[in-house]
Simulated assay, not measured.
Amino acid sequence: MTDLAPVAFSPWEMFLNAGLVVRCVMSVLVVASVLTWTILIAKSVELLRVRAGLGRAEQALELAGTLDLGEEGTRASSIAHTLVVAAQTERRRSADIPEDSEGQKERIVLHLERLEAAEGRRLMRGTGLLATIGATSPFVGLFGTVWGIMTSFTGIAASKATSLAVVAPGIAEALLATALGLVAAIPAVVIYNHLARQTASCRAQVADLSALVMRLVSRDLGRMQAQIASGQVVRLGAARDPRLATGE
Rank of each mutant, 00 (worst) to 15 (best):
T127C: 12
S94T: 08
V109H: 09
R125Y: 12
G128Q: 10
D100T: 08
R122F: 04
L164S: 04
D96A: 06
V167N: 01
M150G: 06
R92T: 02
E113P: 01
G155A: 13
S78P: 03
F139A: 13
Q88D: 09
V167W: 00
L129P: 03
V167F: 00
A168W: 08
S101W: 07
V146E: 01
L130F: 04
S94M: 15
A174R: 11
P98G: 11
I108M: 12
T89G: 04
P169K: 08
T82E: 02
R107Q: 13
A168L: 05
E90A: 07
P169R: 07
L175R: 05
T154F: 03
S137E: 07
S163Y: 07
G148A: 13
G170M: 01
G144R: 02
L164H: 05
T82F: 00
I149P: 04
E116K: 09
R107Y: 11
G155N: 15
L129G: 10
A135T: 09
Q88C: 12
S94K: 11
F143D: 08
R114N: 13
V146L: 01
I133L: 11
T89A: 14
G128C: 08
R93H: 05
I79G: 03
P169G: 02
G128A: 15
E90V: 06
I97P: 00
A131K: 08
Q104S: 14
R122E: 11
H81C: 02
S163M: 08
L129Q: 12
T162W: 05
G128R: 04
E106Y: 07
A131P: 04
E119S: 15
L142K: 06
A95H: 09
A117V: 12
L83P: 09
P169N: 10
A157L: 06
G128V: 13
H111R: 13
A118L: 04
T145H: 10
T162R: 03
G170D: 02
F143V: 09
L142Y: 08
F153I: 06
S77F: 04
A135S: 14
